[in-house]
């Protein structure tokens, strides 16, 4: 039972993180190159998802949106949507910052070779921005991994929800919640370690300065 809950949490976290990355890149590019109108729309989007509680966002997509569009959305789907959109809003900031830090000279140099703007972003700006972004991305991962617990509010059976059920059934609140917290802790620590290793692996080589 705990395992299925855990897998749900992992699923929600990674889906949100990866969709958030793809969306976040598009948002960052839109903001940097899209002109005033697009950039204003993106700003509203980001402010909404960063400025409102994630529980409200879950409610909106679970209760309001289905009524407005006259569709039915399961709690898992709503989780995927909300965590992806929410994470994209945060990741856009990291990506844009990283892109801006490599952006101008490297862009000019790429254009001077005859690369198109899109090629320059793909082959020059993004590869460098991604490297810079990994520490920020680690942050976003650990925060999102824990935020997914909010989904129990719309009835999804994630790790926290399962833990709550067990706790109420056994009346061993302390042990159960401590154990659940430990699982979160181990999961997040392992992934952070992996990201750390990746960061070191793909770091751009420089001269080693030894004291």
């Amino acid at each position: 039972m705990i395992l299925t809950g855990f897998l749900k949490t992992v699923q929600l976290t990674f889906f949100g993180l990866i969709m958030g990355l793809i969306l976040g890149i598009l948002l960052a590019i839109g903001d940097l190159y899209g002109g005033k109108i697009i950039s204003t729309i993106i700003k509203f989007y980001v402010e909404f998802f960063r400025g409102s509680p994630i529980i409200i966002q879950l409610f909106i997509f679970y209760f309001s949106v289905p009524i407005m569009l006259n569709i039915r959305l399961g709690s898992t789907i709503v989780g995927f949507i909300v965590f992806a959109l929410n994470s994209a809003a945060y990741q856009k900031g990291y990506i844009k910052g990283a892109m801006e830090s490599v952006y101008k000279d490297q862009m000019t140099a790429a254009l001077s070779l005859g690369l198109s703007k899109v090629q320059a972003i793909m082959y020059v700006v993004l590869p460098q921005a991604m490297r810079i972004m990994i520490p920020g991305w680690s942050n976003e991962f650990s925060s999102l991994g824990k935020s997914t617990a909010a989904i129990l509010i719309i009835g999804e059976r994630d790790l926290t929800a399962i833990g709550r059920t067990i706790a109420f059934r056994t009346f061993r609140f302390l042990e159960t919640y401590a154990f659940i917290a430990l699982i979160y802790f181990i999961f997040i620590s392992i992934v952070l370690k992996i990201l750390d290793i990746i960061y070191e692996k793909i770091k751009i080589p420089t001269i080693e300065i030894s004291a």
Partner: peptide, 20 residues
């Protein structure tokens, strides 16, 4: 312009190699 720029080599004062 991309096509035209490919035919004009440019060397920058601050070099601007691709760091990665």
């Amino acid at each position: 312009l991309n096509k035209a720029r490919a035919k004009i080599g440019f060397v920058f004062q601050h070099i601007w190699l691709f760091h990665h």
